[in-house]
Write a protein that binds this DNA or RNA. Structure first.
Length: 296
DNA sequence: CTCCTGTGCT
DNA sequence: AGCACGGGAG
């Protein structure tokens, strides 16, 4: 029961990308490695439409890593707004300091150097090398995994991530040439985001439909293990979000009572408050009030 | 493996 | 009202 493997037409995909890519602000010519690192960090788990305005604001305000590094944590968290997972903002702030201090205020172009930065993992490191510096690097996010699962392996969707294999699969698709490989990496992501979507793939307008193993197999449904879905309502994540939102909306420290008001379960509230303290997302003043870090 | 947010679609 | 969504760290 060997699945048919298909080779993807790299040049057609690249041409399609040139014609069809959305004009996202971080794809404009002249965007720095810093601009790309900020966008990729924000896009790690937030959709493009919510990222766009915040990214614009950040680039205006903090055009270089050293500019962000010089800002107080509280301001960084406020500017992060409701993008979610605010620990990303703290890590990016920390990464900015390292880039300013150790890399001459220029985002590194090398994957291993990028990986050493806080908040930069296998996806983001390769995205920055490829998209900011035009280097050949397999960039594997959930969209690319789905495109490869379908077009190459003929499956309805990607199964659970398998980092080594996923990376090798995409590596095998990339041409040797840096510029073409980098653009193909971007094209694979764009294809997964806009055409080869989870629920309603637009195979009619897909540039590789003729070479797609999934098409040839009759578009079989996904038959792997069900992916586990994350709950949100009632979780500590929701409570942490509500707590932090109070502090984002005020200038200085607030009394505990102001935080008590946002969640009725005192045990959960206290646990979340404590975890926010541990994560460095909030601080407690000497008189027992709470504030965003560095703001008292 | 589990945890970390907030939205937009249905 | 409920559900789907996702990269990095521990």
């Amino acid at each position: 029961m060997e699945t048919a493997s298909h080779a993807l037409p790299a040049l057609e995909l690249v041409d399609w990308f040139d014609a069809a890519a959305r004009p996202l602000p971080w794809r404009a010519p002249g965007i720095t490695g810093w601009g790309v690192l900020v966008s990729e960090t924000m896009l790690q788990q937030t959709p493009v439409n919510r990222v766009r305005p915040i990214w614009e604001e950040w680039m205006q305000r903090w055009p270089r890593p050293s500019d962000l590094a010089a800002a107080p944590q509280a301001e960084v968290l406020r500017a992060w707004g409701k993008l979610g997972y605010p620990r990303r903002a703290l890590r990016l702030h920390e990464a900015a300091g390292a880039i300013a201090d150790q890399h001459g205020d220029v985002v590194p172009a090398d994957v291993d150097t990028l990986l050493a930065l806080p908040g930069v993992g296998t996806y983001t490191a390769r995205a920055v090398t490829a998209f900011a510096y035009g280097k050949r690097a397999p960039v594997v996010d959930t969209n690319v995994r789905r495109v490869v699962a379908r077009a190459v392996h003929g499956a309805g969707d990607a199964g659970p991530p398998s980092p080594k294999r996923d990376l090798a699969d995409v590596d095998a698709l990339l041409p040797e040439d840096d510029a073409t490989a980098a653009k193909l990496s971007a094209a694979l992501m764009e294809l997964g985001q806009t055409v080869c979507t989870v629920r309603s793939p637009a195979c009619d307008s897909c540039p590789v439909a003729a070479d797609c193993a999934w098409q040839h197999a009759g578009r079989p449904a996904y038959d792997g293990p069900a992916k586990k879905v994350q709950k949100f309502a009632g979780t500590d994540r929701q409570v942490r979000g509500k707590l932090l939102d109070v502090l984002r909306g005020t200038d200085g420290p607030v009394p505990r009572a102001a935080l008590d008001a946002v969640w009725s379960d005192a045990g959960q509230r206290d646990r979340c408050l404590d975890s926010l303290l541990v994560d460095g997302l909030i601080e407690q003043t000497d008189d027992g009030r709470f504030a965003l870090p560095g703001e008292h």
